[in-house]
Simulated assay, not measured.
Amino acid sequence: MNINKSLTVLFLFILTTSYAQPKAPKGKKWQTVAGLTDEFDEWDQTKWRKTLWNYEEPVQMVAENSGVSNGKLWIKATLDASSSRWFKTSRVMSKQAIKFPMYTESCMKTSGISAFSTFWMNKGSDGGSTRDEIDICEHNTNPSFNNQSNRPYTMYSQYFVVENNDVERAHGNFDNRKLSDENPAKGKKWNEAYQTLGCYWPDANHVYFYINGEPAGSVTSTRKFTRDLNIIWDLWTSVHSWTGGIADKKDLSNDKINMMYVDWIHTYQLVND
């Protein structure tokens, strides 16, 4: 391939991944949802809030461990050695909720510790016993369980439709080593570089996931999604094998690996053209 053709292919790939939402159906067009779109030049309190409900120990959600600086939303894990909730961290959630048909994509980079860096949507009640949830990415790039060699390359995606603790759930997990050769995420651990993670939610039963605009798994529910969902990022750890295992306390003082970052989020809804 000559240099001009190579540059053309590269340009088309960049153009495609910059506008990665699927083509709108006939008679419809994509419209930006301002309340769920942000370049993170500053903290916008009209769009985001810090919801500090905790997961199980050792997680301790605190407001000061998230914020916006240098054009990035960040969430940081630090050590509180005096507490059984020694993993201090934070959560950022949208004030606005949204329902299908919609598309959202977030350019983000995960932490390098054994913890979940997440990008997800949720709405429920009664402590989550009744809820709709779409997990676009729950990722641990450095699992403390030694037998999880595939986890650093996998985008863990799933859904829950829960009614009175009766759970319907399925995974759409995707190994980034299966991406096309042109995709810059192929074979990369998620903390090595920013990648654009997308979610197309067209109707009450289907969700499609994307990495840099390339299809990366899907899920189909039997129950219908019925709720408008908020968008959430958080960073947390646990002892369970399904999260990749507990963080190493000494890693929480290393600012090179103890933070997840979001460069931007763009969200769209389908409207009549």
Score class of each variant (00 low, 15 high):
residue 171 H to M: 09
residue 97 A to G: 03
residue 204 A to I: 06
residue 98 I to W: 01
residue 193 A to M: 14
residue 202 P to M: 12
residue 178 K to V: 00
residue 91 R to P: 04
residue 168 E to Y: 05
residue 82 S to G: 11
residue 138 E to R: 00
residue 167 V to E: 14
residue 89 T to P: 07
residue 108 M to Y: 00
residue 74 W to I: 04
residue 104 T to W: 00
residue 195 Q to T: 02
residue 188 K to N: 02
residue 93 M to Y: 05
residue 203 D to E: 13
residue 77 A to D: 01
residue 144 S to P: 02
residue 189 K to R: 15
residue 84 S to Q: 14
residue 194 Y to P: 06
residue 142 N to Y: 11
residue 191 N to M: 12
residue 133 E to C: 11
residue 79 L to Y: 14
residue 185 A to P: 00
residue 203 D to M: 11
residue 84 S to P: 09
residue 177 R to H: 10
residue 109 K to M: 12
residue 138 E to S: 03
residue 162 V to H: 04
residue 204 A to E: 09
residue 142 N to C: 11
residue 127 G to F: 03
residue 70 N to T: 10
residue 129 S to P: 06
residue 102 M to P: 05
residue 116 F to H: 08
residue 113 I to A: 01
residue 105 E to G: 07
residue 73 L to N: 04
residue 104 T to I: 09
residue 154 T to M: 11
residue 191 N to G: 00
residue 100 F to V: 06
residue 80 D to V: 09
residue 119 F to Y: 13
residue 150 N to A: 15
residue 120 W to Q: 01
residue 162 V to T: 15
residue 134 I to D: 01
residue 77 A to H: 02
residue 188 K to Q: 14
residue 73 L to P: 08
residue 153 Y to Q: 07
residue 171 H to F: 14
residue 120 W to V: 06
residue 62 V to S: 07
residue 134 I to K: 00
residue 175 D to V: 01
residue 133 E to P: 03
residue 184 P to N: 11
residue 90 S to E: 02
residue 90 S to K: 09
residue 111 S to A: 15
residue 172 G to K: 03
residue 151 R to F: 05
residue 198 G to A: 05
residue 78 T to V: 15
residue 73 L to K: 02
residue 128 G to K: 06
residue 135 D to S: 12
residue 124 G to W: 06
residue 85 R to L: 05
residue 181 D to G: 03
residue 100 F to H: 14
residue 100 F to C: 02
residue 77 A to V: 10
residue 123 K to Y: 13
residue 156 Y to G: 08
residue 112 G to L: 00
residue 84 S to H: 13
residue 69 S to L: 09
residue 182 E to R: 11
residue 102 M to S: 07
residue 208 Y to C: 05
residue 75 I to E: 00
residue 121 M to S: 12
residue 155 M to K: 07
residue 173 N to P: 04
residue 82 S to M: 07
residue 109 K to G: 04
residue 171 H to E: 13
residue 100 F to K: 08
residue 179 L to P: 05
residue 109 K to V: 01
residue 173 N to A: 08
residue 62 V to A: 09
residue 99 K to Q: 13
residue 186 K to I: 02
residue 72 K to P: 10
residue 179 L to D: 02
residue 195 Q to K: 11
residue 120 W to T: 01
residue 198 G to Y: 04
residue 120 W to E: 03
residue 63 A to R: 13
residue 135 D to E: 12
residue 130 T to F: 08
residue 177 R to E: 03
residue 78 T to D: 04
residue 208 Y to S: 04
residue 208 Y to A: 05
residue 150 N to G: 14
residue 146 N to T: 15
residue 135 D to N: 15
residue 170 A to H: 14
residue 206 H to F: 05
residue 84 S to C: 10
residue 175 D to Y: 11
residue 184 P to S: 10
residue 158 Q to W: 12
residue 103 Y to G: 05
residue 141 T to R: 09
residue 190 W to M: 11
residue 109 K to D: 02
residue 142 N to T: 14
residue 193 A to R: 13
residue 156 Y to M: 06
residue 176 N to C: 07
residue 77 A to K: 04
residue 197 L to I: 15
residue 148 Q to L: 15
residue 81 A to P: 13
